[in-house]
Amino acid sequence: MTAPMKLALGPLLYFWPRESVLDFYAEAAAWPVDTVYLGETVCPRRRELRLEDWLAIGESLAARGKEVVLSTYELIESDADLRTMHAVADNGAFRVEANDMAAVRALAGRMPFVAGPFLNVYNAATLAVLADLGASRWVTPVELSREGVAAVAAEAPAGIETEVFAWGRLPLAVSARCFTARYYDLTKDHCELRCIGHPEGLAVDTQDGKPFLVLNGVQTQSASPQSLAGDLGGARAAGVTHLRLSPQPHGTGEVAAVFRAAADGALSPGEASARLAKLHAVPACDGYWRGTAGIAPAQAGHA
């Protein structure tokens, strides 16, 4: 009998006012999540919270028994970005999720780290390199299917944990350009931080009226939340140890409660999916997990 799957609250991908962020994590302390990823990963211009603030949040969460991990930027461009990344890597208190190879280099051989979803770990050879450098957990790229995850996990060095993106809008792409600023006809350097007015990003629909994507500054997300609630048994069988839940402005605590109950067998996959469906305006998807187009509608309770 393996240990129960753990729940991880992924890094906050949107830009919220400072008070909203503090309130969110104050609430999160009471949610049934085991791990909390903190820090700004999307855009270096978002500075409502400084590293000290994140560390303070981390300390209060750690005091409530949470494992705290600080995440690095998913795209590093400037010297300032590199300095921030090093400050996170050298924080001295918490484990770090490396989201690019510069961060891996900064952490290699110094302390155990989490190999983030943007490191493109698609095979066991890549995971072996990272494990060699100190990775103790890997977060799968969103594109990797259940079979792919299982195959990599099966060959993974002993003790490596496997985390999948189990709930939320998928971070699909990152750019040097800011699409929120573009929407407002602003340049990136004079963006007026307009994304703070869009706590769930800007919805992008097709011309025939179907929800498709979400603009979140330099990041592009899926409009549908990916949900693996219908196949937690499959996730466990694939070797998944951690389920990542992505923060959203409303209902994240309920999402955590549903996943906890479903992972413990207290909720059937169908019931869990039905409860999650009420928390999001756009129906969930899980195509990536099943090895097909990511947008494919979630199959509640599939085998």
């Binding site: 943007f118 790229p141 792409a173 990511g294």
Partner: peptide, 9 residues
């Protein structure tokens, strides 16, 4: 290397 838009669709 960081774009999954195509596979999403």
């Amino acid at each position: 290397g960081r774009c999954a838009l195509s596979s999403y669709a």
